[in-house]
């Protein structure tokens, strides 16, 4: 094991130790692991399974049931577009196709520069101000195609600055 994966495994063990005695601890653990790494790395699953006294297959079964949990690393930014009816009524479908076209990817895919991963979401609870998208933990309302392009541009610039 290299230094990075040793650290990752230590981090995961710390999360498990902190949460495993809660009743129904699995979802809180998965949330915390994903919060830490941006996804649920494959090597954390046996550790979680051990602590929960379940098989790795059972843990995988839970992860795969929930749309929010991911087992592969996303791009620098996860952009979710609301597909639900209230956004559809305000032009959500047009926004969806514009986003796919301008980023040249479909849902569940990542742009070639690994900057943006596009995902669908079903309702962000901002239904009077659609179409809505979510970027990380930020929800953005009244997203026209032009506004979407501006947001994507800002996300690209921000990444360059960090690097």
């Amino acid at each position: 094991m290299d230094a990075t994966s040793v650290r990752a495994s230590e981090t995961t063990q710390a999360i498990i130790a902190q949460l495993k005695d809660k009743p129904g601890a699995l979802l809180p653990i998965l949330h915390q692991v994903q919060h830490q790494f941006g996804y649920i790395p494959a090597n954390t699953i046996p550790m979680i399974a051990d602590a929960m006294q379940q098989t790795a297959a059972e843990i995988h079964g839970v992860i795969s049931f929930y749309r929010h949990f991911h087992t592969t690393q996303a791009g620098s930014h996860r952009v979710e577009i609301c597909r639900a009816e209230a956004c559809q009524a305000r032009g959500g479908r047009q926004l969806e196709s514009h986003a796919k076209q301008s980023l040249d990817i479909d849902y569940h895919q990542t742009t070639t520069d690994r900057n943006i991963t596009l995902d669908p979401v079903y309702c962000l609870g901002n239904c009077a101000c659609g179409p809505n998208i979510r970027v990380g933990d930020k929800i953005i309302g009244r997203v026209s195609s032009e506004k979407f392009d501006r947001i994507v541009k800002d996300l690209s610039t921000a990444t360059v600055q960090i690097q």
């Binding site: 979802l27 929930y66 929010h68 949990f69």
Partner: peptide
Amino acid sequence: VRLGAGAY
């Protein structure tokens, strides 16, 4: 508070 995970 317990968080769901995107399942309607």
